[in-house]
Structure formats: structure tokens, C-alpha cells
């Protein structure tokens, strides 16, 4: 139902401590990439925005960070009103110049290089992409190595772009420029900071 109440409800019940707990989960996940971390996702955003994605958005996005929604999310007015109310952030029509992007259908999302990559001198001026995936398990296994990972780690999310491996290698090649991904599903997240490398597996 599209009414004011939907927009006002379902945010952090305790904005200070909820934001802290969600942020810590994201920090934890960013520090140990490609590892599934549970989020105490205390928000109930309007569908089809998931709880974890909604919680991460509420914890990180604000008036200083314009955001973009992919078509699968942007078509839901209630969801947009909810994000506007709970984050106070401006929604932008194009994806190329935003600090955050929320993607409901990663399989058909724009290529990673369409988002802000930062500059060689200021690589932090890049986009963080919050992708909502059907599951963080059961997809094609991807093996990663790099900072935050002891030896190697395998993550098998479903619903990512088919050419993700190719795109991720290009993203890594742009280092220190590049985007960082926060994959979300249900109450769980896994992060892929630009620093991690996809390992070519034999066979």
C-alpha cells in the first residue's frame, strides 16, 4: 500500500545503536571479504527492498551522499519514499555520479565501470554498490584472495551478472580506482572491496 505511513515506518527503532550495529557488520564484512556476515537488520523496508539492503542504506547513506536505484527498485514509489525519509539523501536519475547505488536486479545491472571509480589521486571518490542477490550460496563458486583473506575464500552468490568474473578483473585492474560491492540477501551480507582478486581456477 502506498501511503505516508509506509514511508515513515520500518526504519531504525534505535537510530544510534542500530546504525552502529549495522555499520560494524559492514566493516567486519569489508575487512574479511567474500565472507558471509549476519546483520542485525532491524528495518522493514517496502518490497522489494530487502532487510539487509535497507539496513545498510539507513546506516551509511545521508544528505551528503546522493544515491541511485536500478529500474527494478526505482519503479516502486513506496520504496523510494521510504529511502528518502529514512536517509534524507537525494536520489539521482543516472548512476554515473553517485556515492551509493542500490541494485535490486544485479544480473541486469549496468557494467561496474559505469559507476564512479574515483581518481588516481582520490580513489575514495568512488561508488559503493549495494546489490540485492537471491542468495549468497548455491551460485557458481568464486574464489578470492587478497587483503583481509587468509589464503583463499570461496563465495557462491546467485544472481550476479554473467560476466562478473570478467568485470571484476577489470575492476581490480583499475586499482586503486574501482567500485566496492556489498552483496545482501535476507539478514546477511558479504563484501567485495576493490582490493580482492578473483582467482582463476583450473578445470
Amino acid at each position: 500500500m502506498l501511503n505516508e505511513a509506509t514511508a515513515l515506518e520500518g526504519g531504525f527503532s534505535d537510530p544510534v545503536l542500530n546504525a552502529q550495529s549495522v555499520f560494524r557488520a559492514v566493516m567486519d564484512a569489508m575487512a574479511k571479504p567474500a565472507t558471509v556476515v549476519e546483520v542485525d537488520a532491524v528495518v522493514t523496508p517496502p518490497a522489494p527492498l530487502g532487510r539487509a539492503a535497507g539496513a545498510v542504506a539507513c546506516a551509511l547513506i545521508d544528505a551528503d551522499t546522493p544515491f541511485w536505484l536500478d529500474a527494478s527498485l526505482a519503479e516502486h514509489a513506496a520504496l523510494r519514499a521510504w529511502l528518502a525519509f529514512h536517509t534524507g539523501a537525494r536520489e539521482m536519475a543516472t548512476c554515473s555520479d553517485v556515492a551509493f547505488a542500490l541494485v535490486g536486479a544485479p544480473a541486469t545491472m549496468p557494467p561496474l565501470d559505469r559507476f564512479a571509480q574515483g581518481t588516481q589521486e582520490y580513489p575514495d571518490r568512488s561508488a559503493t554498490l549495494i546489490l540485492q542477490v537471491p542468495s549468497l550460496e548455491g551460485g557458481a563458486p568464486l574464489t578470492f584472495e587478497g587483503p583481509g583473506i587468509r589464503d583463499r575464500v570461496v563465495l557462491a552468490p546467485r544472481g550476479l551478472p554473467r560476466d562478473l568474473a570478467f568485470q571484476w578483473k577489470a575492476n581490480r585492474k583499475r586499482f586503486p580506482r574501482g567500485v566496492d560491492l556489498i552483496l545482501t540477501t535476507g539478514d546477511a551480507i558479504a563484501c567485495l572491496p576493490r582490493s580482492v582478486r578473483l582467482v582463476e581456477m583450473e578445470g
Binding site: 546504525a19 566493516m27 551522499t65 580513489p123 559503493t128 576493490r194
Partner: peptide, 29 residues
């Protein structure tokens, strides 16, 4: 506020921390 800083400042610092983790060793302003 809890832990002294206001929430907007914390969010700004938290975003900087995430960027810092993603680009190890790079100094985020």
C-alpha cells in the same frame, strides 16, 4: 550523543573507514 559524535559525523567517518579498508594504506580525507 552516544560516543559523543553526532550521527551525521559518525556516518561520514564510517564511510571513510570502509573506503580505507577497501584501499589498504591509502589515506582517505
Amino acid at each position: 550523543n552516544f560516543a559523543y559524535l553526532d550521527e551525521q559525523t559518525k556516518r561520514m567517518i564510517r564511510r571513510a573507514i570502509l573506503k580505507a579498508i577497501a584501499v589498504p594504506g591509502y589515506q582517505v580525507p
